[in-house]
Design a binder for these strands. Structure first.
Lengths: 151, 151
DNA sequence: CCGTATCCTGCGAGATACTG
DNA sequence: CAGTATCTCGCAGGATACGG
């Protein structure tokens, strides 16, 4: 059994994913703005994890990132990088040359985040076939209700 | 150094987060629909992880989940649970009684997913203050451009 | 109690055009 | 090269009402 939420009205250090009660002694653990969820909002968005993964490999320039990440728009790459920079996940280094050159790299904290995230990716890799099987079984049990072609 | 993307034009088992080239010998690793991202879309959404965390604790009924998860709508709880059920993360057990009773529980696979996800939550817990500091520093460096109140 | 069925809204995110 | 500035649109997700 994995213990993630607290027995009611108890205190201590818990994962901030469940009960209201556990937040009493930890003002920073609000329910609506559950801090534990913030990291998911950070790497759970469409592009952040890909950026982090690429930078885990090596420092990259803006255009290099754009080229590596299939389908990302210039705007979203900028937005993503700014968010990661603000959170201290990546560093942004501007070289005052012309044409401009900007390097992005993982901070030490960013590296540890990547290591933590890899746990999940690894899990995904090793369970994809099982998930596919579950989906197929589910869809077989619950055939899509024919969109009104039977009359 | 964390190695997440492949040296170009090489083959083997890599994390599906970066290069195009690594997908050549793994048809299931498409770029747009990167399978590694699917799990993030699963637990990265607004409610799934909270549901998983609560069920990691113990089996819960629909209404119990609704009560525990502050702010979730009936609709989104249903949608979330259906998705998790389809992926084989949770089981749904209907008792033919009146009024109806439906129990939700983690599958073995769901439990392993929770364990993997906890890695990230733990990381978040232990880096929140560092992130806050980074944000404060960033915001100090980059004060919000006054929204035209200076004329 | 445990859902579906609609309607509606805000925001994530793409496309495009323009600058230092 | 490395961005900002707009405009636009789809859809995740909330509110509400009803059904078995």
């Amino acid at each position: 059994m994995v213990r993630t939420s607290a027995p009611r009205a108890q205190e201590g250090t818990f994962f901030c994913l469940g009960h209201l009660e556990i937040t009493m002694d930890f003002p920073e653990h609000t329910v609506a703005g559950c801090r534990g969820r913030e990291i998911l909002e950070r790497i759970g968005d469409k592009w952040s994890l890909q950026v982090i993964a690429l930078l885990g490999d090596r420092t990259l320039r803006f255009t290099e990132l754009k080229r590596e990440i299939e389908g990302i728009s210039q705007r979203m790459l900028t937005v993503t990088l700014r968010g990661l920079e603000r959170d201290g996940i990546v560093t942004r280094t501007v070289y005052p040359v012309v044409p401009p050159r900007v390097d992005y790299a993982l901070t030490p904290m960013g590296t540890t985040l990547l290591e933590a995230a890899i746990t999940l990716v690894t899990w995904a890799e090793s369970h994809l076939s099982e998930i596919d099987a579950a989906r197929a079984a589910y869809d077989a049990r619950t055939p899509t209700p024919a969109p009104v072609t039977s009359n």
